[in-house]
Design a protein around this nucleic acid. Structure first.
Lengths: 279, 279
DNA sequence: TTGACAAATGACTTATTAGTCATTATTATA
DNA sequence: TATAATAATGACTAATAAGTCATTTGTCAA
């Protein structure tokens, strides 16, 4: 279903320029060169389009960052790599990042708010595991507080480069943030957010995903993509889920095959977790 | 014009609950117990209401913070006082802070975007003068960078308390932020934002205001308020602007009279600056 | 070539809401 | 009390945009 992708791309562009509310379906379809009716063959409603956009891009962004963090073996580079891949993702999907940062909540439906919360918690989870890995016991009392500092810094500086088209020195930015993070992690003695506070902001980061859900997602993706390698890899992975026959090396290779396809990032991330191929 | 105030208050409440776009004029007027037509006797349009809300509250918040900072003589307390009065203002006007944080930009008209920029720059100006006063030459190369750190921290933690009705320990929060700010100010060696970058984000913070504009504002306020003391003080201050006759002590006293009236905060702030009664 | 099926179209329906204005109610004044 | 001036009303207009569906267009197998 290539049409769906076209609509999502063009809609995102218009949303970033004008805002979501200010962009009528008609304008999106005109921009795509299709009829208004055709839109409703791909999406049930405008809200569904918005939800799909958020899911698509947040999944991709988070899967990217998490993968990068998990595959950086050298602790010295970890923090830098984290910031770098985060800003890299924001930059790559800057249209999405713009609407996401600026149009949070509004009134919108409950589903959207829950979604945004969910991805926010996921991001916090990644940051937390990074902090624990880097600083361990030293930040026992300050680690949850540190999460909010990191989020604040990221937000402040990313706004700067999303809404200013001046080219910026991403290397310097990341070095600078690494220094700041290390400073705060090493010397903070008065944390504001305690472990209890953090728990209180409930909604577990987990949300275990079942094998059935993954299979369903694979079937969905199979309908959407054409590339033969990715397609075959997905089919094999699906069969392996139903009845394990492949060796770990083959599974890992298949996952590498699909990892960089935009439609597969999320599912490959979930499968990596499912098979615990990395920690 | 008490009607205008009523509409602003009720509208703010509904905006904070449902979002601006999602709140029709009819609902606001119903909530006020007036007719729809009456709305248009007070405001030319819905956009004017929004602009007025932003002006009213931003002026009050910024005047408050600036006044507090300028009247804290003890440098030891300065940073703490700054954070405390900021969060105090956010808390006092939490409905406004909510819509302001969440609904930035959208598509909206040019005027709004310029307004928001303007107040953002004003806030940066206050933070900058605070940093310069506290750390002086030591932060020559990092002060502009520090501004973005402080803004990021404020944003991160204020979001936490605006959208979580749990009571929070504001004293601890401020102590914690003071420590963080001091850490960053004392040890940062790799700033990201250079003085040149900061200049590039142009639009001067100044925007000098003329005496005529102040007089016009006073006349506007005189139509809106009833309290006799404030009213007389304003009339005397206006006369003094046209033809200086009062001693500095009397002027200062008159300004103190109006300082805490919601409608007068901005004008009193401007007059303080105009007479340079404090630095 | 034809007929069956699917894909695509865009005029239409329905709903919402900003803003207007002729009419009515209220208040002030003579 | 009568009259003029002002304030308030809400039915109405006009504009916009989401979503529908009868009709047209395109595709492909027989």
């Amino acid at each position: 279903m290539i049409k769906k992708q076209l609509i999502m791309e063009k809609a995102l562009e218009l949303f970033a320029q004008q805002g979501i509310e200010a962009t009528p379906i008609q304008q999106i379809t005109d921009y795509c060169g299709i009829s208004k009716g055709a839109f409703y063959l791909s999406f049930k409603s405008k809200d569904e389009l918005i939800i799909d956009l958020i899911d698509h891009f947040m999944m991709e962004i988070i899967a990217d960052i998490d993968y990068t963090v998990n595959n950086t073996k050298n602790d010295e580079e970890l923090l830098y790599t984290f910031y770098y891949s985060t800003f890299d993702s924001f930059h790559k999907h800057s249209d999405f990042a713009k609407i996401f940062i600026k149009e949070q909540t509004k009134s919108f439906n409950e589903e959207l708010i829950v979604k945004i919360h969910y991805y926010d918690r996921l991001m916090e989870g990644i940051i937390l595991s990074l902090i624990e890995r880097l600083y361990g016991e030293k930040v026992k009392h300050t680690k949850y507080d540190l999460i909010y500092c990191i989020k604040g810094l990221m937000n402040s500086y990313s706004g700067l480069f999303l809404f200013n088209n001046a080219p910026l020195n991403r290397d310097l930015l990341c070095q600078s943030l690494v220094e700041k993070t290390n400073l705060l992690a090493s010397h903070t003695t008065v944390p504001f957010i305690t472990p209890e506070d953090f728990q209180m902001l409930k909604h577990p980061i987990k949300e275990e995903i079942t094998m059935e859900q993954i299979i369903e997602m694979i079937e969905q993706i199979l309908k959407e993509i054409e590339e033969p390698i990715e397609k075959e890899s997905l089919i094999l992975l699906k069969q392996h889920l139903l009845e394990p026959t492949l060796s770990p090396a083959i599974v890992k290779g298949l996952l590498e095959n699909i990892r960089n396809h935009p439609h597969c990032k999320w599912v490959s991330y979930l499968l990596f977790r499912y098979y615990e191929l990395e920690k």
